[in-house]
Design a protein around this nucleic acid. Structure first.
Lengths: 131, 131
DNA sequence: CTTGTTCCTGTAGTTACTACAGGATGTATG
DNA sequence: CATACATCCTGTAGTAACTACAGGAACAAG
């Protein structure tokens, strides 16, 4: 069991953001010590690290909620869990293919610069023609 | 040449967002017709589509500016262009590896659901243990 | 017992949009 | 040509997801 400051350090999420997540219901209400302070466990470190990554990968909080529900709602039927996972999977694969295109272009640029040749950057074209 | 509404439709970016981008300097001031209305070309369609993808992939506007500068600032030295591209490349590869982990886990879930087996989701663990 | 750190609630500011309000201009139709 | 309706303009206000105080209580070290 740890206080909010330790949780913040271990998860990489700011204290204020943790309290914000509790307020808007992304995290459940934290347990409180006798003095009123929030106390957390290892479970919360993992959950917050997950949220941090998901947000950084471009998922909005609504999708994060959906992904969390996938794991944390055992009463969810197999059908709806699978539907939910499939929908998120589509979004993930779309991001993957666009990131691959962008990576290739950035790599090409760095390589061409190493060779001392004049720069000729096409990052915009690389992504702009995608679906 | 097209008005802002057509640009919005072709790029997938809202009219208000286009004007916002101009205001904050992500887009240059648009040309104006005699009546004061903004006019755009095919170039702007590509640029906006690029911004839309980059934002959706989790880049903030500051990074988008950097990526745009890469392409649109010819006076940028090869060294600084390469540095900029390398930095963005790191961010892209980090996102790619995390998305791959997330995709594998989502795939595993959908597959296990198809087999009618009880669901056992580890999306949180998949991402939470990553750097 | 003081000093410094951590926590609390609550509110205000920031980023990146998004949605009007109120008014001018453009286009299509009777 | 008049009237309707869409599209544009500026400007301001609202929303999502934080982020940063302010003012005060509580704990821990010396």
């Amino acid at each position: 069991m740890m206080p909010i400051g330790t949780l913040a350090k271990q998860s990489g999420v700011h204290i204020e953001t943790i309290r914000y997540y509790e307020r808007v219901g992304v995290l459940p209400k934290a347990l409180r010590a006798a003095n009123g302070r929030r106390i957390y466990g290892q479970q919360d470190v993992r959950r917050l690290a997950f949220i941090r990554h998901a947000r950084d990968l471009g998922f909005e909080l609504a999708s994060v909620r959906a992904l969390l529900a996938l794991q944390e709602t055992p009463e969810l039927s197999c059908k709806s869990a699978s539907d939910l996972a499939s929908a998120q999977l589509l979004a993930v694969e779309s991001r993957l293919s666009r990131l691959n295109v962008l990576r290739d272009e950035l790599k090409r640029m760095v390589r061409s610069c190493k060779n001392g040749r004049v720069m000729d950057c096409r990052v915009i074209d690389a992504l702009s023609t995608m679906v």
